[in-house]
Each structure stands twice: as structure tokens, then as C-alpha cells.
């Protein structure tokens, strides 16, 4: 176990050397969840999840398939609303505001909390249109040149601009898998969200594309609060500062990433990290 932990720690340091653990714990809380339960019809998928997510850091949710980590992620921008028969109870606050308050418009919420999905899903439109869509529907650009600027800067932030600058009018679906996923990230950040949710963003990508996205996540941390669901423990160790381990719909353990991987308190967390469950 020591060997594995050492390896994880090394890779973590190589990518993630900007912040030390105590720093992270002192950061303000952006998202606060208390006793969140989710039912899909008669089946309960989440059991009383309570967690705080720090500002401008990467928080990762890990756990075996079907453990509820994606379900919880989808509660944060109310994507579960779109699923027939899904019922969410409990409290989730963004900057102290209850996101399930009936007075709050879900459209506004999703402008503040962007999402990147497991499979790259660019719109079947041009690269430009993909990035411009969010600012357009939310009325963020005052003029065409404004919009151009948002598109270019978003593509730059997503590290895609240099690769696509000559073909902004070509369809986004023509890009490679990794480029498509970065286009989806550019699309999400074009709206200027405060939080970005990523649901296994690299699971459909090859190792090189994965490495590029991981680097990008590390850079985005400067400006955005990021929550990432991943089934890869190495990825969680490399990119996140805080880690939460889910199992069978429950939050088993959460804490500073380094602690979770080197010094897990819970037996189940230990087993998962050692590869005994999952």
C-alpha cells in the first residue's frame, strides 16, 4: 500500500504542485450540500449526502460504478430534473442560496454551473456556433465583436484555439475526441460559470487526450470551482485537491486528496484504493 501511495503522490506532485493541503481547507466554501437523498421511482440512489466544496479548487468524486457519484453531480445543476420520476430531497446551496428554491430559475442556475459530459457532445454546428451558443441564449454579448471575443478567449482558455483557429466555421463534430471534449469545455466556460461540473470527462478519450484535459483542468482551477467525477483513482490523485469517496449511494469519506490516498480512515476507502472493491 505504501508503494502505491508513493506513486500516486509522485504523479500528483508532478502536475499539482501549486497548492498545499492546508491552503485548500482554508478556502471559502462555494457549494454546500446537506442530507441530499435521491430517489428514482421507488429505488433510492443517494442516502443523505453532506459535503462542502471549496472555491477555486478541484474536488473529485470517486467510487465504483453505480455508487451515486454521477447522480450527486447531476443534483448540483439540477440535471436530475429532466429525468422522469427522479426526486431530490435535502439542501444544496450555491453561495448560501438554495438551488432547489422554487423561486430560482433553473436556466439561470445552469448558466452559473456549467457541465461537461462523459461523452463529448458538441452540437452538430460549427465550432464557432458551439462556443457562441451559451453567450447568445443568455444575452451575454452586446455585439458581434463582443461575441467573437468571447469565443476566441474561451477557445484559448480551453487550449483549443491554436488547433482550430483556421476552421472555426467547420462542424464541431469533425474534431477528434479529445478536441471535441475541449470544445465542450470551451462551450461551458464561454458563459462564465462559477462552477464547472465534469462527469467522467476523459472516460471516452485516449491517454494523450486525457493528459491534455487533465492539464487543462489544472489551469482552469485558477478561475473556476471544479467538481469532477472519475472512475480513475490516478486521475483523482493527479488533478484534485479534495476527494470524496462514494459507495452504494453513501458518501463514505471525504477530505484532502493526499490524505484520502495515503491515509484513508475508513476501511472501505482503503479497500477501494487498494483495488479490492470497484
Amino acid at each position: 500500500m505504501d508503494m502505491l501511495a508513493g506513486k500516486v503522490k509522485m504523479t500528483q506532485q508532478s502536475v499539482n504542485n501549486g497548492m498545499n493541503p492546508t491552503d485548500m481547507l482554508e478556502r471559502p466554501i462555494r457549494l454546500h450540500a446537506k442530507d441530499v437523498t435521491v430517489h428514482y421511482g421507488a429505488k433510492q440512489a443517494l442516502f443523505g449526502i453532506s459535503i462542502d466544496i471549496p472555491d477555486r479548487a478541484v474536488t473529485s468524486f470517486i467510487g465504483p460504478s453505480g455508487c451515486g457519484k454521477s447522480t450527486f453531480l447531476r443534483c448540483i445543476n439540477r440535471m436530475n430534473d429532466t429525468i422522469e420520476g427522479a426526486k431530490v430531497r435535502g439542501l444544496i446551496e450555491l453561495d448560501g442560496e438554495d438551488i432547489y428554491d422554487p423561486a430560482l430559475d433553473v436556466v439561470e442556475l445552469r448558466a452559473r454551473i456549467g457541465m461537461v459530459f462523459q461523452k463529448p457532445n458538441p452540437f452538430p454546428k460549427s465550432i464557432y456556433e458551439n462556443v457562441a451558443y451559451g453567450p447568445k441564449i443568455h444575452g451575454l454579448a452586446r455585439s458581434k465583436s463582443d461575441l467573437d471575443e468571447i469565443v476566441v478567449s474561451s477557445l484559448r482558455k480551453a487550449g483549443l484555439f491554436e488547433e482550430v483557429k483556421d476552421r472555426l466555421n467547420e462542424p464541431g463534430t469533425g474534431l477528434s475526441g479529445g478536441q471535441q471534449q475541449r470544445l465542450c469545455i470551451a462551450r461551458a466556460i464561454a458563459v462564465g460559470p462559477e462552477v464547472i461540473l465534469m462527469d467522467e470527462p476523459c472516460s471516452a478519450l485516449d491517454p494523450i487526450a486525457t493528459a491534455i484535459i487533465e492539464e487543462l483542468i489544472d489551469e482552469l482551477r485558477e478561475n473556476f470551482t471544479i467538481v469532477i467525477v472519475t472512475h480513475s483513482m490516478q486521475q483523482a490523485a493527479r488533478v484534485s485537491q479534495k476527494t470524496a469517496f462514494f459507495h452504494l449511494g453513501k458518501l463514505i469519506e471525504e477530505g484532502v486528496t493526499e490524505d484520502i490516498f495515503t491515509n484513508p480512515v475508513n476501511k472501505q476507502t482503503q479497500d477501494y484504493i487498494m483495488g479490492r472493491i470497484g
Binding site: M79, R110, F117, N121, F123, P124, I137, A188, V191
Partner: peptide, 27 residues
């Protein structure tokens, strides 16, 4: 129409009507 396209639109904060008219109908 693939659910991925609907999710992409909703995830961007498009309303249901915008999702239908901007993305689902053109496809």
C-alpha cells in the same frame, strides 16, 4: 435524437423550448 444532444443543450442553460427549436428540430 440522442439524449446527449438534449443534455448538452440543457446543460448550457437552454430552456426546454430553446432545446427543441435550436437543437432537436434542426437535427
Amino acid at each position: 435524437v440522442s439524449p446527449a444532444l438534449r443534455q448538452a443543450a440543457l446543460g448550457m442553460g437552454a430552456s426546454k423550448t430553446q432545446m427543441v427549436f435550436h437543437h432537436v428540430l434542426p437535427v
